[in-house]
Design a binder for these strands. Structure first.
Lengths: 144, 144
DNA sequence: ATTTGATAGTTACCTAAGCTAACTATTAGC
DNA sequence: GCTAATAGTTAGCTTAGGTAACTATCAAAT
């Protein structure tokens, strides 16, 4: 079997398992993966427009609209006025930020548990490789 | 930001991009990710029961039943008699095997493209690390 | 040998989360 | 000012996951 096949087989299996466990953690807080990924983005970037999120998460706009609507309804988001009256700029509300900190702890525990036994160097090297592969994919898209 | 957070952020982003591109390739052949993962398993393991597939792919039995039914209807599977009258053992039909070879070529191209620039050593090292993490997750499940 | 419990699979139903197509509202560019 | 492009929404579809409850078959224990 080709080593690339082996790589991606393992990659996909690992992702499924990880997603499974992540869902378990998130379900304790009534959250779902798509919601969590948006909260994560807003934790690292203060605020974002829907297009920005769609581009980052590589999904279409309606998908983002739906997830944002849910997060708004729960009360985890607040609107930030943007310079453009078309765009809808959102940030985490206080409630959202508080929840994020809570959930972040649990997710950190999960993630660190999975990475235990993998040295810091290996982690960083792997992250670097994944970043490289990701860039590769993105630039491929632009040349289509 | 914690290096574990960085790791998994990159991991998830890479997975999404990869899945996107994989879907593009598969759609040319009228296939979907879940179907493809079953065909892949059958290419490497000759035949399988539904429970075996469910365990491997970490999904519940009804999910497998549905996907198998679809693959059967298209004509990509054949039934293999098992020793147990309860179990349903499936393998790829000739049509399925022929298609697999076809699609495999396209997927190989995609995968090798993404991995270009990553040395063989790095690939193998990363695969090894992912295997380790995966095992870690599995054993965690068993102790619950 | 019969009953009990475990295992394989199916059916029915629910939900998340992706997609496209078609639309409105606003802005930018010529 | 008219036209293009951009941001977002709405409606409707599909895949793919989940649980609960069921049948059929096999294994094991008494």
């Amino acid at each position: 079997m080709k080593s690339s096949q082996e790589f991606f087989q393992q990659f996909v299996l690992l992702y499924r398992s990880f997603e499974h466990h992540l869902n378990d953690v998130l379900s304790h807080y009534g959250l779902y993966r798509a919601q969590w990924s948006i909260l994560h983005y807003l934790a690292k970037n203060e605020s974002a427009t829907l297009v920005e999120l769609a581009h980052y998460l590589r999904v279409e706009k309606p998908t983002i609209t739906r997830t944002i609507t849910r997060l708004e309804n729960i009360g985890y988001l607040s609107l930030v006025p943007g310079k453009d009256r078309r765009e809808k700029r959102v940030a985490m509300s206080e409630t959202g930020a508080a929840l994020y900190i809570e959930v972040r702890k649990a997710v950190d525990l999960l993630e660190e548990g999975i990475l235990s036994g993998v040295s810091d160097e290996q982690q960083q090297e792997t992250t670097r490789i994944m970043k490289q592969m990701h860039h590769h994919l993105i630039s491929k898209e632009h040349t289509l």
